[in-house]
Design a protein around this nucleic acid. Sequence first.
RNA 1: GCCGCGUUGGUCAAUCGGCUAAGACGCAUCCCUUUCACGGAUGAAUGACGGGUUCGACUCCCGUACGCGGUACCA
Length: 507
Amino acid sequence: MKKIRVRFAPSPTGGLHLGGVRTVLYNYLFARQHDGDFILRIEDTDQSRFVEGAEQYIIDCLKWCGLTPDEGPVAGGPVGPYRQSERKQYYGAYAQQLIDAGYAYMAFDTPEELEQMREQFKTVQDPQPQYNHRLREQMRNSLTLGEKEVKSLIDAGTPYVIRIAMPVDEELSFTDMIRGEVTFKTGLVDDKVLIKADGMPTYHLAVVVDDYLMKITHAFRGEEWLPSAPVHLLLWKYLGWQSQMPQWAHLPLILKPEGHGKLSKRDGDRLGFPVFAMEWTDPKTDEQIEGFKEKGFLPEAFVNLLAMLGWNDGSEKEIFTLPELISSFSIDRVHKGGARFDYEKAKWFNHAWIQRLSDETMAERLVQFSPSHYGSVEISYLIKVIAAVKERCHLLTDFWQQSSFFFEAPSVYDNDSVKPKWKDQHKEFYLSFIERMAGLKPAEAGAFEQIFKELAAEKQIKPGELQMFFRIMLVGGKFGPPVFEITSTIGLEQTIKRIELFLAQIS
RNA sequence: GCCGCGUUGGUCAAUCGGCUAAGACGCAUCCCUUUCACGGAUGAAUGACGGGUUCGACUCCCGUACGCGGUACCA
């Protein structure tokens, strides 16, 4: 049985960004495809960084995307607890085991001393000196201090960290599911901290211990973790678990649209598109950050577009449902290179999904999305309206501006487009049009067009020009579906009323 | 600086040695429509560079350049 985990650490500012959701998505697809368990782990490692509500937020986002984990802090499961803060007791013993075996050591250097060391050894060739096999000889740690001194420091309650002792010159390699074989030299990696002075493990120790205890078989993470892979590799080896090491896949990054670096929250602010799945309130600034959900994206489209950013099935198919993704996804078709995010294409996906979903489903979604606009609307009417306007909507928020006139008469008219051409004969035309329509029964709404055209012919006015005016009477401006589609939807009474309203304000 | 990973049109990308290099987004022109869209048609636009290997290289190898990531008691 495969076990695939996804882990999340609450970032200092919170929020679940595109790259994060895509990592979960690929994990999820892989798990479903191989009939494996999909496990959520919350890494609230550092209490000072932990953000209130971040965990629930992550769970809500995943739920919205339809990527609900099988096991985790909410669902529970056999290898819990799933929150790192509740697993503290596990890490210390393993760290001690590493020290005893000579694979790790205690370091008593204060932050100031570390600072000083970096300053002192900084050169042009080595601008960021590392705490590594060379420098550790000169620092205050259990390798350089005598046994007695170490003991007295510990007895005195001196804070210390536990660092891994990276071998001087070994070659390490592993096979990444996406990248193939990747090789590192241990001497070039620093002695990473495993346990911090506050006794909490760092990511490096925590992932390894947790993945082992939880019997994780596969793990996906962002490419930014690749450089620390040798540390994790060594930990698996030193703890004697090498044969049970999970398979890793390092996913390519999602890049800024125009250029340089990873996509960040600030890019969204700057360029006017969301980067989070759902709305997030920054706990420090109280700033509310709109997510894809609030922006008017369908979860189906969101998942679809994310899946295609860095993967495709080799065919021309672009629109995939989640079940289709599960059956077509394959990890070896995931790209190695990062992909720039393109908001225009994202909207195109959403447009495609709006057309794809049934009008009934769209009605439900719209009522949910904007109860203030659609909550009290008759559903059968709403479905008709959706059918009339959906092809011109890219976002859920487009619906109201494309359809408000189906529910209420326009409050402003684009008179600039009317006045230069408006003549008395036009007014006469519409007055007689009202008269003729008044004789109709409400059910004969379909006859409007015929009457309109007959009357235009009688009065010898071009129907095209008349339609322009008619449109503005009905919707207020030059937009919306074909006019007679509108009249037959809003009905006889409304149509007459709107003509009258317009005539009253134009003269 | 060092280490790792990348590099096909503006963007997402197909191609696993036979290429006249797909498709999509975006863009342009035209058609449809006397609205805004949708749709349809057409078009402009791509293998970073230099060496190999090979009958043949976008595809394999080696350099160079460029980009990204890492280089924290952050994840």
